[in-house]
Design a protein around this nucleic acid. Sequence first.
DNA 1: ATTTCTTTGAGACTCATTCTCAATAAGGGC
DNA 2: GCCCTTATTGAGAATGAGTCTCAAAGAAAT
Lengths: 141, 141
Amino acid sequence: MSKNKEKLKKVLHKEGLRFTSQREAVWNEIISSDEHRNADEIYMAIRLNGVLVSRATVYRTIDVLVKNNMVRKLDVGVGPSKFEHKMNAPHHDHIICIQCGRIEEFMVNQIEDLQDSVAKEYGFKLVRHIHQLFGICKDCQ
Amino acid sequence: MSKNKEKLKKVLHKEGLRFTSQREAVWNEIISSDEHRNADEIYMAIRLNGVLVSRATVYRTIDVLVKNNMVRKLDVGVGPSKFEHKMNAPHHDHIICIQCGRIEEFMVNQIEDLQDSVAKEYGFKLVRHIHQLFGICKDCQ
DNA sequence: ATTTCTTTGAGACTCATTCTCAATAAGGGC
DNA sequence: GCCCTTATTGAGAATGAGTCTCAAAGAAAT
């Protein structure tokens, strides 16, 4: 059994949820690409593969994956949220072009550390963060 | 004429928009409080003051104010967006409790500088950013 | 095999936000 | 002030992402 399938089984078990072919199909579709896709795009991709999974199940499954840190939810400021898997991908944040929608990934250790300090200072136990820079990319300027 | 009214007039003029009593009412309501309120709360507050402004106008006006950096839009992860004015208020970002919804403000110069570096590195002209830390506050832990 | 509990799918529903369009009001020129 | 042009407004319809419902189907337990 693949490592990814293992991972899914483990998380579902931890959540007290059953391993089903639908949930596997959603997870497989999400890890099959490094694109930032919305729920509907993921749903359509699964259908194109000939598998029948409802939109509701796609949303429900994504929720579980996001909650368990396997998928990141991305609010791009306009339209539906986008999702990306976090398997083997190092942590990163995003810089987004407000003209063309282009998304680049960035990661600065110093910023991560400073975030931890802020959380500590305010007595918060940090769960996640959103850090998105919006601007005009080189091509659109 | 108050400085705030001046500011609104200037921005509306710059945008080629007219100065109207409705837009003034929305702006006045927003600067009257330092709370983080959603569009509907702002709408209701205006009505309580006896002024009649439609929901559509509240949304339309907020859009202009956000675009012109007079108001900050806050996506708190669940439910409607919240808004806060930026008059005389130094720049800050937010740390949000995912249990009780409490919002604290923080500001770290070093993070701001690092953001600028990232934008520069990727060739982006930075327009705005979202930086929100989500966690469990002291009281909810 | 029977019971129990979870999951699923189809579509209804929610609710923040945006759109429509006829009526109204600003702003500029006279 | 009065016209004229053009923008703005309000009421409610429309949109659309996401969630919920509930009967049918499937898995697990006994």
